[in-house]
Write a protein that binds this DNA or RNA. Sequence first.
DNA 1: GAAATATACCTTGACAGGTGAGGTATATTG
DNA 2: CAATATACCTCACCTGTCAAGGTATATTTC
Lengths: 112, 112
Amino acid sequence: MSIASDMIRGHTDTIILAQLLQGDSYGYKINRAIEMKTGGKFELKEATLYTAFRRLEQMGWITSYWGDENTGARRRYYSITELGVENYYRMLNEWEASKQIIEHLIRPERAE
Amino acid sequence: MSIASDMIRGHTDTIILAQLLQGDSYGYKINRAIEMKTGGKFELKEATLYTAFRRLEQMGWITSYWGDENTGARRRYYSITELGVENYYRMLNEWEASKQIIEHLIRPERAE
DNA sequence: GAAATATACCTTGACAGGTGAGGTATATTG
DNA sequence: CAATATACCTCACCTGTCAAGGTATATTTC
């Protein structure tokens, strides 16, 4: 497992929900958006992404439906639910809190 | 597993190394120090801590020796190695980088 | 002096999330 | 027609966390 994966763990759900907050989308597109946003510095692995979709849907934070494209490969679209929105904001707050705890813990203490 | 644990995952090694940068220490004391530093908001579980010690020692980032207390329970002290110091600084930098990526990804994009 | 608490260490098994490797199918481009 | 892009999916494995259990010594409380 690369270093980034343990750092990102615990944020994949939030990252996906953040994307869906801007409107329904599908796996492939979400991954492209993330890649674009980070200038290629980061991407969710496909297996991680689809595992996350299953998890989020089971928790009722997202719902899905098949698109009706009449050309190209079929797409499964995802929508964020009200419950998903609530949890998204909760997780944003948790990030703020844990970020500060981490910041505090990974620096050696100044002499006092 | 609590929420905080997935957020802290990937930082436990750095947290321990940060403590050892201030001088040799032992498991129990390190955990108390972390608890103090966060005002009780966070603590490494014992199993996690001792697992981390084994991992860090195996990687050669820390070394250990038994203290020679003539009273109280025996203590195993840990020292950070040169390799440990190098990796500590590397991980600090990785935190800075991944922090910004996460920040960028968990917020919905402003319309442009 | 017995019980409770604090100090201090340790291991095991279960669990969850990430991921490499594999698969399917359609459309386009050289 | 081969390669590439789009688009989905699953399985087995790995790693880190942690609840639950254990050992031992010293101090405090009743």
